[in-house]
Design a protein around this nucleic acid. Structure first.
Length: 340
DNA sequence: AGATATGATTGCGA
DNA sequence: TCGCAATCATATCT
């Protein structure tokens, strides 16, 4: 008969033991002889289900106060020590899951899991900025995107909260149960900890599913939004004029600095990246077909010259935006009368 | 409707 | 990260 069977058998006969209460060895000797039929024990166990809560509590109390309890407890401790090896292997700490980390990072970047103010609206604003609409143009898609993102965010947080609440409730429940049980059987804090970590692992795998589907939803939303970006609109006439003016007056080096881009963006009511796009397109298209742009170039050269003249009439000649054409792109050629 | 213009995107190299 | 070159997708012109 092994220890556990002996223990079961012994439970039924606790009442009959009177001597050597504190000595596990003597207890084991006595417990070693089956004093009651297995059938009786089973009957007792089955009877537990028929007991009321009060009866069960009373019974539990009686058991806890039983004079044999310390002896039984120490026997259980011994058994425990023998079996503890088997659970040792299970409790290695696993490192943070890279998959979860990826999902977390993405949710943070998209403004789903981060703080309310910065993330969502910032990401939406950035996306809207990339969308290229002027403040008025993009507003419909922008607010639409923001609303959808906020919806996703809200669902994500409420689900997450639900999971966390369920997890902590369940953990508490299990911990209370184990603490309660620890009065009658040896349960080390380490074991409770282990059980808690098992529960947490289970719940974090559920959380991962939530995060995964949230990421998917964001990706779908984003891709829809990016498709919408293709619906471009031409810049207004004034904006194109401002950009062209800068381009042709800096034809030798049509690369606006970051500050210049910002200023142009402000003047044209577009974004800095739109200014960059415009200059990129302009440079390449001008270079590819200088002839075609000649007229335009002359037009703006004259315009710039007139502006500069006006400025110099008022003040000194110092800050004309035009730089002499030297290298870079070929300058437009003039006829003596100012025409091509 | 087809041609052309134009803003945006993508892939690559420095 | 920036710019170039090719390309896409849409707007506008003829």
């Amino acid at each position: 008969m092994d220890d556990q069977t002996r223990m079961l058998a012994g439970l039924g006969g606790l009442g009959g033991l009177t001597q050597d209460v504190g000595d596990p060895d003597s207890v084991r000797k006595q417990l070693g002889q089956p004093q009651q039929d297995i059938g009786d024990i089973l009957q007792q166990i089955m009877a537990i289900t028929d007991e009321s809560l009060d009866e069960a509590q009373a019974r539990k109390h009686a058991l806890n106060c039983h004079r044999m309890k310390p002896a039984l407890f120490s026997v259980l401790c011994e058994i425990k020590e023998k079996t503890v090896l088997s659970i040792r292997g299970v409790q290695e700490e696993d490192p943070p899951d890279p998959q979860i980390m990826r999902l977390d990072n993405m949710l943070l970047a998209e403004g789903v899991s981060g703080p309310e103010k910065g993330g969502g609206s910032a990401a939406a604003a950035a996306a809207a900025a990339a969308a290229g609409g002027s403040p008025n143009d993009g507003s419909i898609e922008h607010s639409d995107y923001r609303a959808k993102l906020a919806q996703i965010r809200q669902i994500y947080h409420s689900e997450l909260e639900k999971y966390e609440q369920a997890c902590s409730e369940f953990t508490n429940h299990v911990m209370n149960l184990l603490r309660e049980q620890s009065r009658t059987r040896p349960i080390s804090p380490k074991e409770i900890e282990r059980m808690v970590s098992i529960i947490h692992r289970k719940f974090s795998s559920i959380q991962m599913q939530l995060k995964q589907s949230t990421c998917e939803a964001v990706m779908i939303l984003r891709s829809r939004f990016l498709d919408a970006r293709r619906k471009r609109r031409n810049f207004n006439k004034q904006a194109t004029e401002v950009l062209n003016e800068y381009f042709y007056s800096h034809l030798s080096n049509p690369y606006p600095s970051e500050e210049a881009k910002e200023e142009l963006a402000k003047k044209c009511a577009i974004t800095v990246s739109q200014v960059s796009n415009w200059f990129g397109n302009k440079r390449i298209r001008y270079k590819k077909n200088i002839g075609k742009f000649q007229e335009e170039a002359n037009l703006y050269a004259v315009k710039t010259a007139v502006d500069a003249a006006n400025v110099s009439a008022q003040a000194s000649q110092a800050n004309s935006p035009a730089t002499p054409n030297s290298g870079g792109y070929p300058a437009p050629c003039y006829t003596p009368d100012g025409r091509l």
